[in-house]
Design a protein around this nucleic acid. Structure first.
Length: 571
RNA sequence: UCCCGGGUGGUCCAAUAGUCAGGAUGCCUGACUCUGAAUCAGGAGGUCACGGUGCAAUUCCGUGCCCGGGUGCCA
């Protein structure tokens, strides 16, 4: 770390000075240091109308990260202002996902609907100030009067209603005297503003819908542009961080805060949302995939949702680290999926226990084995990255399975696995030599007859170099497992902007089920959600469907890097 | 057409009015290896364009080009 050459020592609640700050943290740091906001308060305000995805993780890491680094706090607030779309199921899923990612909100869990009464009072206040009016125009009329990008809007006939009339009408809107859409409340700002958001935005609409929390207590609901800044201000949020598409709303955000009697003045700062290659991120599209059964629910391991990634086996720490890697800017970036997968492998390499599993078994008979029932106990390293993890016993008998891929009758140059007459190491065990290739009448290889060299356990054979060590499972000890192999959901780098509908670019077989892989028996007893490495194949996570003691079910989290396969596909 | 925001290796992110513009990832090569993994070493690859002000510009200014957002009673 060294000494801090950059100016005076920072207050105790500053982040480590060696970490460079992104443009948002720089603002926060300045506000902390200047004393403007000694205790920064951020918030994560999801709308409970869908599940959280990896893009939300970026916002989560930012908001909760700042709270941690600057000894502030971060509120979790459900932005539940549209009962048409929101549901308690989503709220519960969101809380689960935030906690899983590793963030805690303590007592600071709120809902925009907590503030409905106060928001209503603010609306009355605006009316009394002559800053809001009830517009009885139809949606079409309002739209027509809004103008266009290049032409100013104009007032509707209701813009100059008296304060008394507005008060009366708005009160009756709440009382339920009118039907849906009959009136709206609008902020009175500037119909000629070049920013369309400032052309008298609607801030309340009549909607006879049952809200999942407030039930039928209200028939008018505030809109985001009104509810959000005021909720922030009521909670004493200091830095309200949101994505770029709200940049055009900031003047309105500031207007609401400035014209209502609120206890604080939060500042909105925008950053670029995350886009990932081969992924769609919009909640609307993810909902569509779920609704149309193109995936198996929000937590399908192919989904970019946090629940999907969790089920797939992505560690929370990997996602957090990924968010650190991608940084924070205002640039519309398209992040390579490889960056995420790298974080996942990096994390799992450190923590995942290794096992052996054979997905596509080819039987080997060791012809010179001491006896048909003879069994020897081998000792396999659980995690070479972690000596503490120790070793485990692995049984070896006369017959073992190896991966069919690991044998080639007529291999290309550079292939150094098993071949006729060739010798390979059975990992953690003996070296074996292929003496005979056994085929059925169709010419299909059914098994290999091999001999083993008893003098190769724990040491290299004399005078020969054995290049490959392949994984295996003893036929007499293996258990069958179902393995689900996932591929990316889309074939196109940018399914959103590709020609046609995004669903045209779905990968045809993005999940392949291997019904009867042969795995080490210990894998049958691991707890669901445990992620392990199948040596030489990849990282795999025990699925939620996995019941310890029954037939194991594993999801492939991510493959290991495979430079041989890469070289082959290059041709 | 108008308003707002943005353009640094393939990708993501740093830095600077002046050493060879750094890091990560990806790619290539080699070493090591009982995981063709990991690890280690090396390599290729970049300041959108044009002007302006500076002794000096990727950095400051202007213009152009390109990209994103903006006409919900969605968020």
């Amino acid at each position: 770390m060294g000494n801090n050459a950059k100016g005076p020592a920072k207050p105790h609640n500053s982040p480590t000075p060696t970490e460079k700050l992104d443009f948002i943290r720089q603002v926060v740091a300045d506000d902390v240091q200047s004393g403007k906001h000694p205790t920064p308060v951020t918030r994560f305000p999801p709308e409970p109308n869908g599940y959280l995805h990896i893009g939300h993780a970026k916002a989560l890491c930012l908001n909760f990260g700042i709270a941690e680094e600057f000894s502030g706090r971060c509120h979790l607030r459900m932005d539940d202002t549209n009962p048409a779309k929101e549901d308690i199921e989503y709220e519960n899923a969101i809380k689960r996902d935030v906690e899983w990612l590793g963030f805690t909100w303590g007592d600071h869990f709120f809902h925009a609907s907590d503030y409905y009464e106060k928001l209503y009072e603010f609306a009355l206040h605006l009316i009394r100030e002559g800053l809001a009016y009830v517009d009885s125009s139809s949606p079409d009329e309002i739209r027509a009067a809004r103008g266009t990008l290049t032409e100013p809007g104009k007032a509707t006939p209701f813009r100059d209603r008296s304060i008394e009339e507005n008060l009366d009408l708005f009160t009756r809107m709440r009382a339920g005297d009118f039907s849906d859409g009959e009136h709206v409340l609008r902020a009175k700002i500037d119909m000629a503003s070049p920013n369309l958001n400032m052309r008298d935005p609607v801030i309340y609409r009549i909607q006879r819908l049952t809200h999942y929390r407030t039930g039928d207590a209200w028939c008018i609901y505030p809109l985001y542009d009104f509810a959000h800044p005021l909720s922030d201000a009521l909670e004493g949020i200091t830095h309200s961080l949101c994505s770029l598409e709200f940049e055009n709303h900031r003047p309105l955000y500031d207007w609401c805060v400035a014209h209502c009697p609120v206890p604080s003045t939060p500042r909105q700062i925008e950053f670029a949302r995350l886009s990932l290659t081969y992924t769609v991120m919009s909640k609307r599209k993810l909902l569509q995939l779920v609704k149309e059964n193109l995936v198996n629910g929000w937590d399908d391991p192919r989904m970019p949702t946090l629940s999907g990634m969790r089920r797939r086996g992505y560690p929370a720490a990997a996602i957090r680290n990924f968010c650190k890697t991608i940084g924070m800017t205002k640039f519309n970036a398209l992040t390579d999926l490889a960056l995420l997968e790298h974080s996942v492998r990096e994390q799992l390499n450190k923590s995942a226990r290794r096992f052996m599993a054979v997905l596509d078994p080819l039987k080997i008979v060791i012809t010179n084995w001491p006896g048909d029932d003879h069994v020897e106990e081998m000792h396999a390293v659980n995690n070479p990255e972690d000596p503490e993890a120790g070793k485990r016993p692995v049984m070896l008998g006369k017959e073992v399975y190896i991966e069919r891929d690991d044998f080639m009758e007529d291999p290309p140059k550079g292939f150094f696995r098993m071949r006729p007459g060739g010798e390979v190491r059975l990992r953690y065990s003996y070296c074996i030599t292929c003496q005979e290739v056994v085929k059925d009448s169709d010419g299909h290889i059914t098994e290999l007859h091999c001999t083993y060299d008893p003098d190769t356990l724990g040491k290299n054979p004399e005078g020969r170099k054995v290049k490959a060590a392949i994984h295996w499972v003893s036929a007499g000890h293996a258990v069958d497992a179902e393995i689900r192999l996932y591929d990316r959901l889309f074939t196109h780098e940018t399914p959103d902007s590709a020609e046609g509908d995004f669903k045209d670019h779905l990968t045809p077989d993005s999940v392949k089920i291997v019904p009867a892989a042969k795995v080490e028996p210990a894998l049958a007893t691991v707890a669901p959600s445990t992620t392990v490495q199948f040596e030489r194949l990849g990282y795999f996570c025990a699925d939620l469907d996995h019941v310890p003691g029954e037939k194991p079910v594993f999801n492939r989290t991510v493959t290991l890097k495979d430079s041989w396969a890469k070289a082959q596909s290059r041709g």
